[in-house]
Design a protein around this nucleic acid. Sequence first.
RNA 1: GGUCUCGUAGCUCAGCUGGAUAGAGCAGCAGCCUUCUAAGCUGCGGGUCGCAGGUUCGAGUCCUGCCGGGAUCACCA
Length: 595
Amino acid sequence: MIEKILSSAFIQAYELLYQKNPAVKFVIFQKTRPEFEGDYTLVVFPFTKELKKSPEQIATEIGQQMVSSTAVLSSFNVIKGFLNLVIDDIYWMEFFKKEAANESFGLLKKEDPQKVVIEYSSPNTNKPLHLGHIRNNLLGWSVAEIMKAAGNEVYKVNLVNDRGIHICKSMLAWQKWGEGKTPAKTKLKGDKLVGDMYVRFDVELKKQVEKLQTEGLAKDDAIAVAPLTKEAREMLFQWEAGNQDVRLLWETMNNWVYEGFSSTYNRLGIDFDKIYYESETYLLGKELVFEGLEKGVFYQKDDGSVWCDLSEDGLDEKLLLRADGTSVYMTQDIGTANLRYEDYKSDKMIYVVGNEQNYHFDVLQKVLAKLGKPWAESIEHLSYGMVELPEGKMKSREGKVVDADDLMDEVIATARRMTVELGKLENMESEEANNLFRIIGLGALKYFMLKVDPKKTMLFNPAESVDFTGNTGPFIQYTHARIKSVLRKAADNNILLDTEIALPKALLNKEKSLLVLLYTFPAMVEQAAENRSPALIANYMYDLAKEFNQFYQECPIIRETDEAQRLFRLQLSAFAAKTIHKAAALLGIEMPERM
RNA sequence: GGUCUCGUAGCUCAGCUGGAUAGAGCAGCAGCCUUCUAAGCUGCGGGUCGCAGGUUCGAGUCCUGCCGGGAUCACCA
């Protein structure tokens, strides 16, 4: 890494000149801004106090010393307190020689690889996946891939919320109004069918509640005593008691949902190493709560409910077991966290969950700490922002949701339309064309979702949907296809690429900036992994594509008459294509050979 | 009300954890295809980085206060 070389050169120069050690925290090299000459810049202001010299003087002295003692430095200049260092082209060319054909470029080896378990998706089985889930799924999957690329051992897990009152509502509605419908008979995806039943329940319940309200009941009371509410509760009770009929219906309907989900996951390109089901884990937390009660870190109220007092940590008291002894959400999460740790003995457990649950995860971590679980601090809540529509938050009850399958259909249809409009379909078989629409449509969608900082709330406008020009997935895909086209043409002209790496005598501006950008890819992977941010990869990829297009515009590749130069540019282009491809793979975005 | 969080161009977003004159895309305007894919490239216009203080050589970035949006504070999940 060039930064390391520069740092140690700086420290040596500093010690030699001033007989002192520089404060390491000030030794930071950053990329020189394009309007100045140089590749890396050090700000020398911080050293003026210690050395009692002007920044210009310090920069000049150190610059001279560094250039004379460091082979990769060819020159320097000083502007105000900024020391700009120029790296010799040879350094970049050697990097090119070493890495251009290296298939594992960008795949990092870590000295201390971590075992990471990352949970994402975590759907309820009573409704289909929507736009919010898409962000969650893409984020979780991508962060997992990025952390793998950064040299960690990563396991992707899903925790399906397959039991509870909400499932019973769908089941009950199906019994009453389902008319024996099945996904096979109706040709409706299973998750959609079950979702419809859930909505139906809500509609019917509302009717009952309104009737009760006209009889003088308050809304909350009306909901509580409505026959449907009671029936749903009864069904949940029967489920917990193991009633065979209820269990059979539950299993049947959940299987419909799983088929629906897996088709959505497949299409999105999302997968898991292990799937946990809440129906199998929801009882696990209780024991731990009792343990805590014995240890005296939790306490019991007169009504029998169990609580954890977190007021010393700045939080409230938190219920862990209801008065009737049943579990709450927190109880389950304590149990599943413990199970997961026992399963994997991981160094890190990451939960990809929306920021509306920040408080929940604060509490979870503190409760586990109180239970004396040393791995409590290995829990990390990857808290991401909500996806909002122009009119505000999505509200599933009001039907204001963007359905995941519909959205995928739509972006693929748009990709088809654009491609046809642009007349890109010559000599393309329909199979390739259809696959291309899929690749472009999903590429547009995924890039759109992932280019935004995960922590931030993002806006999705269904009317405008996602763009296909500018800072978008298709732009990057187009660049990739364009490079591939050039490479194919070179092959047609019998220009062999896989010969020795070719090096020009000197680097042109655009050749160099492309090369330097490629150089930073591994560091980018590492940074994205540390920050759990696919957005960094997305933005890098965009810069890279843009940089290539500028190079392409300025430098003839096949048309170049100097053979060595031509070969170098071809290899540089191939390197860029490979790196774009690799970066995109970390986001789950496919790159077409032509488009 | 307590806690957390966000506020950057008309719109959508960057801004590498404090560095030089704050950047992209979209939208608008003007150019570039008989030459490697024009889903591209080049140029122009567009900013009190919510407001006010503070910290320091230096603040969009850190601290405090205020204004405005959002989340959360359930014997729901």
